[in-house]
Design a protein around this nucleic acid. Structure first.
Lengths: 206, 206
DNA sequence: ACCAGTAAATGAACGGTGTTTACAGAACGG
DNA sequence: CCGTTCTGTAAACACCGTTCATTTACTGGT
């Protein structure tokens, strides 16, 4: 009875091929250039065939989102192993920014296009790539707190969200407003450094 | 010879009406819902007529961008009058975030769509809304430095870019990833507070 | 070996999109 | 009054995502 298995395999294979080609199109020319007709042409099937494997264009984009986020998570994981929390913050932040700049269209797809594309990434208890990667960042501050190195009143979750927002701001501004002069890496450095130590040499008003 | 002036006036009026209706469409349903045909229908002209007033759809979007940024600048200006620099940072930051959340589609158009839409905003010496509003933020740190309240070595421009990126990160994440739990205003507060004073009660590793 | 039934694939259509162009009409200056 | 200039448009072009009736291919059962 290996025959239906082969069919299942072929089905999965085509699905995979569609996603591969779709990914290429997005990476090369952005999400808006992902056309169902061109995609069908590229995989050498009729447009209607795509709808046997995906509900619609958005479903393809969602799948690309999930996989893209998986890559982002993978890019963050090495840095998460650094022991010293503040150094870890630095390394992971740099990895995040690097990923965003090296995969601009993937990053756009996940974080800058339609909210519907990314919602599923960020729900579901603590499994799911979204909460997982967020957890990696939050642990920096949990570790600092449990080591008594920051105030007990500090909220690790909120600090992590703040850092994430800052990193995202750097990447996404670089991707849309070429105007910013400072390099992304220097901005990232200033961000983490200043978030940790405050403004250099700050004195109160007198 | 008031006749050609009247024509000129009528021409400008139609142009303005097109922009008004286009703005409404964008504000209500987002940039992607801005259709030349629907726009033509709404102003009761044939689609081709729109091309007598704008080069193409993108040109309309660019104009909306410029005006939207003008509104943002106007929203920032009151806060820029606050004397105490750190309080000014707080007030302006809050105004920025408020603007982004209250005009999501305008904000998206300026900062999260095609880079081509916003490029012109950020060039041209120190005139232009882009550099002007950036200057407002940079002055916070210039003032701090010239008052001897932060280190001479601190770079006001870089600090301003960092803050801007952080604020933008907060707004744009709120607009695309509903996932984030903390409210935008609390994130903004944490961002500025922490950027100024560093992590609360930080002690070095021992 | 044939037949029924199922799954895969498609051609053609529907209703949209931005944009161009050839043409019509009105209004104006001389 | 005529010729030019400006305004406006219908029609077409080349796309787009999606649906559906129909055909094709194949497989399990007789």
């Amino acid at each position: 009875m290996g025959i239906s298995e082969r069919k299942e395999r072929q089905r999965a294979e085509l699905r995979e091929q569609i996603l591969r080609v779709a990914r290429d199109m997005v990476v090369k020319e952005g999400f808006s250039a992902l056309s169902m007709r061109k995609l069908a042409e590229a995989v050498e099937y009729a447009p209607a065939t795509l709808y046997l494997h995906f509900e619609n264009r958005e479903a393809i984009a969602r799948e690309l989102c999930v996989r893209g986020f998986g890559e982002l998570l993978a890019a963050l994981e090495p840095g998460a192993k650094v022991t010293e929390p503040l150094e870890r913050l630095s390394v992971m932040g740099a990895a995040y920014v690097k990923f965003g700049l090296e995969h601009p269209e993937t990053y756009r797809l996940i974080f800058m296009e339609d909210p519907r594309l990314s919602t599923e990434l960020f729900q579901g208890g603590s499994d799911g790539a979204g909460p997982r990667s967020f957890g990696l960042l939050a642990r920096v501050f949990e570790d600092l707190r449990s080591a008594g190195r920051i105030a007990d009143t500090a909220d690790p979750g909120r600090l992590a969200e703040t850092v994430w927002a800052g990193l995202h701001g750097i990447v996404s501004l670089k991707l849309t407003c070429a105007a910013f002069q400072t390099s992304a890496e220097k901005l990232r450095e200033t961000l983490t450094e200043t978030l940790v130590h405050g403004l250099p040499g700050l004195k109160p008003a007198r």
